[in-house]
Design a protein around this nucleic acid. Structure first.
Length: 444
DNA sequence: TCTGGGGTCCTAGGACCC
DNA sequence: TCTGGGGTCCTAGGACCC
């Protein structure tokens, strides 16, 4: 399974490469502050409700893992240094990482900041073997970024990812064991190797699915391989069943998707102390809306769907969403929709998390048409438009207010008297000719 | 032992259109 | 008068990944 640089598979045998930076956030912190070197360092939430996002290998020796509650991690390792994340910094390193990968091939797909799948098939004509590509990436990342990483090679994403995991350092009995750095699972042993893995090693099998499979007596990949897909589908759904059935025999049709389009943006915040009552919530929503609006504008997009998520102290969550016939990218508009949606949530418990998300994107250039259509369509609707039209001339403003009213009407709230907060601030909606501000001073 | 914040995808039900 | 089936869109919730 392990290979030396002189041999290894051809591109046809291992067209996929997966590369994963070691303990990425924690490693960046150590690079920026060398006094942390050799110490148990984590990046994550520092408060009582925080979780670990990244743990140095020194911290992992104590059993600290990412996704672990920070208080638990501290209990395991009293000397643990937990640092708040500096994501601007990680993005700088991530861009450099991507630049190194791009020098090898433009055919790569990134997963988060610290992982990449590469399609190596374009290397065939350059006569570069996968093992050389892997070694080259590792040495450049070490030399130019100062970071370590593991590389997996395989005939599909499934094997490449499983192999990169195998390539990494790991902890045995509190001692750190070096990994091989590069792993390829050769065809003669791949089936046997795969069959001995637990089902939870497979992509898409988390705690919930693992528990369902466990109940069916399916603990290992080899167990999955003998069960009928329809039986599986009855328990985990058709799509998951199809994936699992394929993975169980080493098949994976997923392609490397080079330019993945973003489909949603959002902002969530867990509060150190839970919020109570609608007023605190709507006040907080304004700040969230501003973050989401900035993200949309920086990407030149407008969103038709606004979703609010509320998580209560008992960890149950509810969401409410509204899809408009036109897109918005403005904080006042997003906040107005969000606040209307929040009105419909039964605040029976204190709220530990508030999230606002935007989705159903339109290109900003295409929004004007949608907007005009929305106005024309709604003008057939008698619903208190006469009064609105006589007061307001700006069609964008009206469309947005209609949308807010619609939300309130849908949830049985008073639809009238909702215009004031929009008029107070002025509203911007992206149009074909650029941005226009609509507000008290901009009106005729 | 207590569970973040950035996302993606899937499912199921209801509304609506043809 | 009662009722089809297919397709699309929207909503809410859940699971998963990094």
């Amino acid at each position: 399974m392990l290979i030396s640089p002189s041999e290894g598979p051809s591109v046809d045998e291992a067209p996929l490469l997966h590369i994963d930076l070691d303990a990425f956030f924690a490693s960046v912190e150590i690079l920026d502050d060398p006094s942390l070197k050799g110490k148990p360092v984590c990046v994550g939430g520092v408060g009582e409700r925080g979780v670990i996002a990244s743990a140095s290998y020194e911290a992992r020796r104590f059993g600290v893992r990412s996704a672990m509650a920070s208080v638990v991690a501290r209990r395991l390792c009293p000397d643990l240094i937990v640092l708040p994340g500096r994501f601007d910094r990680y993005e700088v390193y991530s861009r450099q990482f991507h630049d190194v990968v791009r020098d090898l091939t433009p055919d790569f797909e990134s997963l988060g900041l610290d992982e990449v799948f590469c399609d190596l098939r374009s290397l065939r004509r350059l006569n570069v073997r996968p093992i050389e590509a892997a070694a080259g990436l590792r040495s450049r990342i070490a030399d130019e970024l100062g970071l370590l990483c593991g590389v997996g090679l395989g005939r599909n994403k499934l094997f490449a990812k499983l192999a990169s995991k195998k390539s990494k350092p790991h902890v045995v009995d509190g001692r750190l064991v070096e990994g091989p750095g590069v792993v390829w699972v050769s065809p003669d042993i791949e089936q046997e190797w795969l069959r001995e893995l637990p089902v939870s090693a497979l992509w898409g099998v988390g705690p919930a699915t693992a528990a369902k499979l466990e109940k069916l007596g399916l603990h290992w990949v080899r167990d999955l391989a003998r069960v009928d897909e329809l039986t599986l589908a009855a328990h985990v759904g058709a799509s998951m069943a199809a994936s699992l059935a394929a993975y169980a025999v080493g098949e994976d049709r997923r392609e490397v998707i080079v330019d993945r389009e973003m489909k949603s943006v959002g902002h969530d915040q867990t509060f150190a102390r839970s919020l109570e009552g609608i007023d605190q919530l709507t006040q907080t929503a304004k700040g969230h809306a501003a973050v989401v609006a900035r993200a949309l504008r920086s990407q030149g997009r407008v969103a038709r769907t606004i979703t609010v998520v509320v998580r209560f102290d008992d960890l149950t969550s509810v969401s409410r969403s509204q899809t408009l016939s036109f897109g918005v990218d403005d904080e006042v508009a997003i906040a107005a929709i969000a606040e209307a949606l929040l009105q419909s949530v039964d605040l029976h418990h204190a709220v530990r998390l508030l999230g606002i998300h935007a989705s159903s994107f339109l290109e900003r250039e295409n929004n004007q048409m949608q907007l005009t259509f929305a106005i024309e369509a709604s003008s057939d609707n008698a619903r208190e438009r006469a009064a609105i039209v006589s007061r307001e001339r700006q069609i964008s403003h009206e469309a947005l207010r209609d949308a807010v009213d619609e939300v309130r009407q849908r949830f049985g709230r008073a639809a009238l008297g909702t215009a004031s907060e929009l008029s107070e601030h002025g509203v911007e909606i992206a149009t074909q000719r650029g941005r226009h501000a609509f507000g008290p001073e901009a009106r005729d």
